[in-house]
């Protein structure tokens, strides 16, 4: 027995129409994964905020009222007024384009210090690189041929290409990078995430990074490399902190203001950016590095270039030893 017989001719037409139309098409799998990743992240944050809110109720009702008001303002009112500024362009080189939230056209990004708002997209060309300073202090660098969307100061969507994140003083949990193949969460670190041709590669230079996928969570530590292929297979490898593959991120590294800072501060920065340990030839060199104060500002140079320029104005020299160590000497 079927309903067709009960419905008569009109029922046959219903069947004909649905049969003619065929099965509704499923959305592309990559769109499913990308939207799910973003939705899940929003959901987890939402749930997290609600849990914190409930704990607050037990502690002090008045405080919770203020917190809830602030959350309401942040979540509902402010987004309706204007998109929040979540990053600033720190350094830009080569062809880089940006598309603000809701805008239809890409426009060239030529100036640093420019504010970027939630929903903004950035795209680098074959020679383009850019460093962003996210609210909260994370340095996010885009390699060539990369496209990202900025959702929040700690939430980025990587659509293709590679990003390098240095959470620095932002501390663990400074950034989450969402890709269709997985979500990377820093646990206090410097790392590179590359997504190309449906293959995801995570390289950790310092600290640890959690990578969440449909198949579960993976954690990579400093010096480790994870590659997730199109079939979901995981390959683990190693990468040294001073491997030449990190060089692209160094070329676009944010250069701090060293004016009135000691040489020791400069050396600390160079060590972090290049992954090379600093060794003082003797105690005198170490004392000298701590006492010599730099004056003036260095331009947008790579770390080792900046070190060469600035040390040339002092009585300190350096040499890169065969094992990659930067040895500092007092003449």
């Amino acid at each position: 027995m079927t309903s067709d017989r009960e419905q008569g001719t009109g029922g046959d037409l219903v069947a004909t129409l649905i049969r003619t139309a065929g099965r509704r098409a499923d959305p592309p799998a990559d769109a499913y994964r990308a939207v799910l990743a973003a939705a899940e992240d929003t959901w987890q944050r939402k749930v997290g905020r609600r849990r914190h809110w409930r704990v607050g109720v037990g502690i002090a009702a008045a405080f919770v009222l203020l917190t809830a008001g602030a959350a309401l303002l942040r979540v509902v009112v402010l987004p309706m007024m204007a998109p929040a500024e979540i990053a600033r362009v720190d350094r830009v080189g080569g062809g880089v384009a940006t598309r603000p939230a809701g805008a239809g056209a890409w426009v060239p990004l030529v100036a640093a210090r420019r504010p970027l708002h939630a929903g903004t997209r950035l795209r680098t060309g074959p020679d383009g690189r850019v460093d962003l300073r996210l609210e909260g202090g994370v340095s996010l660098r885009l390699a060539v041929m990369t496209e990202v969307e900025l959702h929040a100061p700690d939430l980025i969507r990587l659509q293709r290409g590679a990003v390098y994140a240095d959470t620095g003083s932002a501390g663990p949990g400074g950034i989450v990078v969402v890709t269709p193949a997985g979500i990377a969460r820093d646990l206090g670190t410097q790392f590179e995430l590359r997504y190309a041709g449906d293959v995801l590669r995570l390289r950790v230079r310092e600290g640890r990074v959690s990578l969440q996928r449909d198949a579960g969570e993976l954690v990579a530590a400093a010096g480790e490399q994870l590659t997730i292929d199109t079939a979901g297979g995981v390959t683990r490898g190693n990468i040294a902190r001073d491997d030449p593959d990190w060089a692209w991120a160094e070329t676009i590294a944010p250069v701090p203001d060293f004016n009135d800072q000691s040489v020791a501060v400069l050396l600390e920065w160079v060590a972090r950016e290049t992954g090379r340990p600093v060794h003082y030839a003797d105690a005198a060199a170490e004392q000298r590095a701590a006492s010599v104060i730099l004056h003036g500002r260095v331009g947008p140079l790579a770390p080792l270039e900046a070190l060469g320029v600035l040390l040339s104005t002092t009585d300190l020299t350096y040499e890169i030893l065969p094992d990659g160590t930067i040895e500092v000497r007092y003449q």
């Binding site: 769109a31 990308a34 939207v35 973003a38 939705a39 959901w43 979540v75 959702h151």
Partner: peptide, 15 residues
């Protein structure tokens, strides 16, 4: 379409 649906879910969940 992906962008719009993604924004839909994010907005919907937030609200």
């Amino acid at each position: 379409a992906r962008d719009v649906v993604q924004q839909t879910f994010c907005r919907g969940i937030e609200r």
